[in-house]
Simulated scan of single mutants.
Amino acid sequence: MGPETARTAGLGGASGTLVTLVAADGSAAHPYLARLTRGIMPLRDLGDLAHQICLLHARHPDLFEQAAAQSRQPANAEWLAQAVSAFAAERAYLVRVVAAAGPMPSTPGQAASEAAVTAQRHALDMLAQSDRNGCADGTAIALALDWPAIRTVLDVLAERLGIEPPECQLPPAFETATVIDVLAGSLSVERAMAFGAQQMLAQHRGLIDLLEARASARGAH
């Protein structure tokens, strides 16, 4: 059990619900991402993840910036400010890795893949800009909790490309858990946060499903 897992183990209430949700439905639980994490997959498959994540998240404004503009929760302001700053560094790192990885690997059905990622990006935009009190917060929180699993694969790729991965400065899970419990002051807000989190995780799972299908398509040609 790692330090983050140890600090968040046994959480109750809203934070326990969201942390458990990410553990069960987040990117780390996807078998294909687990294979990428082991670093035994072809470089083109690792590079494809970096390219697709770049299309989804390396844009301005990013999800955290959108959530910060939309959130009506003063208790979340400091956490979001830290997340915005940290994710700007993550975007820069992601772009650097993508540039080093070279062009996106040639894959059958490229137009359909691009359309799928565009739809996912639109879905995330809608969640992060939702007027439902708590939805944008839950979306951002889920991204912060799920990002370490994706970051692990980016780091594997970076190291294979000779890039030293910088330390991720996103708020640690135990701090995020504290914010979750402060935000969840009413059942309606807690439900909205859970909805935003569930939908964000669904977009990441969909992207990893797409990556697996693209790798299979390349292997068949």
Score class of each variant (00 low, 15 high):
Ala123Thr: 13
Tyr93Lys: 11
Phe64Gly: 04
His57Lys: 06
Phe87Cys: 03
Gln110Glu: 15
Pro165Arg: 02
Thr17His: 10
Ala86Met: 10
Leu157Tyr: 06
Pro31Glu: 03
Leu124Ala: 05
Gly13Gln: 02
Ala81Val: 11
Leu211Ile: 15
Leu49Met: 14
Pro31Val: 05
Ala29Ile: 05
Ile141Glu: 04
Gln66Asp: 10
Ile180Arg: 06
Leu63Asn: 01
Val97His: 07
His57Thr: 03
Leu154Glu: 11
Ala77Phe: 11
Ile208Tyr: 01
Thr37Leu: 03
Thr37Lys: 05
Val19Trp: 00
Met200His: 13
Met126Val: 15
Asp62Cys: 13
Glu114Phe: 04
Ala177His: 02
Phe174Arg: 14
Gln73Asp: 12
Ile53Met: 14
Arg191Trp: 01
Asp181Leu: 06
Val156Met: 08
Ala77Ile: 06
Ala142Tyr: 01
Gln110Ile: 12
Gln73Val: 08
Cys168Asp: 12
Tyr93Val: 04
Arg91His: 11
Gln70Gly: 06
Arg35Lys: 13
Leu170Ile: 07
Ala101Asn: 08
Pro165His: 06
Ala136Glu: 04
Asp181Ser: 08
Leu46Ala: 01
His122Gln: 11
Ala6Gly: 07
Glu114Ile: 07
Ala6Phe: 04
Ala217Thr: 03
Leu43Trp: 03
Ile40Arg: 15
Val22Phe: 07
Phe64Asn: 00
Glu78Asp: 12
Gln70Asp: 00
Met1Glu: 05
Ser106Tyr: 00
Gln198Phe: 00
Val84His: 14
Ala111Thr: 10
Ser113Ala: 14
Gly102Ile: 08
Ser188Glu: 15
Ser71Tyr: 12
Ile40Ala: 15
Ala119Asp: 14
Glu90Leu: 00
Gln82Thr: 10
Glu114Gln: 13
Leu157Ile: 05
Glu212Ala: 14
Ala92Tyr: 01
Ile141Cys: 07
Met41Ile: 00
Leu63Arg: 02
Pro105Met: 10
Ala173Cys: 03
Gly219Ser: 14
Ala6Pro: 00
Met104Gly: 00
Gln73Asn: 12
Leu124Pro: 03
Ala101Leu: 09
Gly185Trp: 09
Ala142Cys: 02
Met200Trp: 08
His221Lys: 00
Ala69Arg: 13
Arg132His: 00
Arg191Cys: 00
Val179Phe: 12
Leu43Phe: 03
Glu190Lys: 02
Val98Phe: 06
Asp137Thr: 01
Gln70Arg: 15
Ser15Arg: 02
Ala142Leu: 03
Ser130Asn: 06
Ala111Asn: 10
Arg44Lys: 00
Gly2Trp: 09
Phe64Glu: 06
Arg72Phe: 00
